[in-house]
Amino acid sequence: MTDLKTALTGANREAVVTDMAAFIDSSVSGLSGFTGMAVKGALGAARKADPDVVSKGVNRLLPEFCDALDPHWRSYRGDGAATDGGDFGGYLEKHGDEVTDSILAVADRNADNIGQPTVAKVYSSIRGKLTGIISDHLNGLGAVIEKHAA
Rank of each mutant, 00 (worst) to 15 (best):
G30W: 07
A143I: 09
V54G: 00
Y123W: 11
L92D: 13
G140M: 03
P63E: 08
R109H: 09
G128T: 05
A143M: 12
V53T: 02
A150V: 12
F65A: 03
A143Y: 03
E146L: 01
N113W: 02
F65G: 01
R47K: 15
T18P: 05
G115P: 06
L130H: 11
V54Q: 01
I24G: 02
T2P: 14
P71R: 04
A22R: 13
G132R: 05
D67F: 06
N110P: 01
G33D: 05
D19P: 08
N139Y: 06
R74P: 00
E146A: 04
G57N: 03
L92R: 15
R60D: 05
H148M: 00
D67H: 08
S27E: 08
N139Q: 13
H72M: 12
R77G: 05
V106G: 06
A149K: 07
D25H: 13
L92T: 15
T83G: 11
A46V: 08
T2N: 12
D97S: 12
D87C: 00
G96D: 12
S75Q: 11
L4R: 13
G85C: 10
Y123E: 04
F88G: 00
L141Q: 09
R74T: 13
E146Y: 01
H72V: 02
R60W: 09
N59L: 04
D79S: 12
L138Y: 01
V106D: 07
P51C: 05
V16A: 01
S55H: 15
G33H: 08
V119P: 01
